[in-house]
Design a protein around this nucleic acid. Structure first.
Lengths: 176, 176
DNA sequence: GCTGCATCGTTATAATATAACATCCCTGGC
DNA sequence: GCCAGGGATGTTATATTATAACGATGCAGC
């Protein structure tokens, strides 16, 4: 199927933090998997069927998913038996390739929207609809580095996790 | 339970992020416990012996401590029996009073250095010495709020956890 | 002293994560 | 084809973190 050509040029932000509740989500998944294929191929990393399946499961929604939820879905959707290490190893690989993020405050995982660039993780989580979104704002990361530097602290990794209410949920634009 | 907002402007730098490795740590503990006594008394919250003991355990070091470590120390130091809920309930109380923070990326807890003011949590964690320190820099929190606002996102809570190397460890000034 | 409620004790179990070792399977060399 | 080597996965067991549910205790106010 052809997709309608947009009347407007691409928005200023390459990826708005939260997509509209009604959007072409199949497209999100396809894009993420294609990007993952490309990135892994370029690195000689093996995005096996299992790993790809786990990544696809994480991309089914914009909500962080726990390892045991992934496990359950994986077991339901395949003939193969699955135990926790199976899932944790796949997640470990995907984390290592920068294809997903771990949401520390939820013990959960979510697909990375910018897997092609190494970046500090900044995640907004909506307490109303449960979705999470990455913020493509490197200024915060830089500010954190600068702030830490005033204490002589050298930053290696930083995680910023923000809870609140997303625009759609604030304005009552909910999925029907 | 509500927390009072600070009436006074914060000092320029009330506490350097990391104290020197050799410092009067007994003083840290005393200060923290006295502040906790004062704060709880002012709110009519009951800082019981158990809760005070748990807080003291967390203040014994500047490293985040897991709930089961607290449990072990508590059991070793008292005649009372202790089970996980005992510790988790005390931690929950202390979190609620803003006397400690949860370090999400470590599943651990650490005493709050600024319990008198409601504030966003920003923690630096040294991968070399294991210590963690709060950053008294509200500019980052404000920048995060502003950044989120450009997406129409209203921030309720934010957690910033930064891993890296502290000044002492970078310059080789280690505890003897 | 009684009553009511917060606190704490106790038991059991849920939820998250990893260790250790066996097996499978792809890849490259012959 | 066949084998050796190593990465990936399967399997079993267990470690670690956290909470549910209910009973006992004890303190504050009457």
């Amino acid at each position: 199927m052809k997709r309608k050509s947009a009347a407007l040029p691409a928005p200023a932000f390459p990826s708005p933090a939260f997509p509209p509740h009604a959007h072409d989500h199949a497209h999100c998944i396809d894009d993420a998997l294609l990007a993952a294929d490309r990135i892994c191929a370029g690195r000689g990393a093996r995005l096996t069927e299992l790993r790809r399946h786990v990544l696809a499961i994480l991309w089914r929604s914009h909500e962080p998913i726990g390892a045991y939820d992934v496990l359950e879905r994986l077991a339901r959707e395949t003939r193969r038996r699955a135990a926790p290490p199976t899932v944790y190893r796949a997640l470990e690989f995907l984390l290592g390739q920068g294809l997903i993020h771990r949401v520390e405050s939820r013990n959960a995982f979510i697909g990375c929207t910018r897997p092609d660039m190494n970046h500090a993780v900044e995640i907004l989580m909506c307490t109303a609809c449960g979705r999470a979104a990455e913020v493509p704002d490197s200024r915060i990361a830089r500010a954190v580095r600068n702030s830490a530097a005033t204490f002589g602290f050298e930053v290696q990794r930083q995680t910023i996790e923000v809870s609140g209410v997303c625009a759609d949920c604030r304005t009552g634009d909910r999925r029907g």
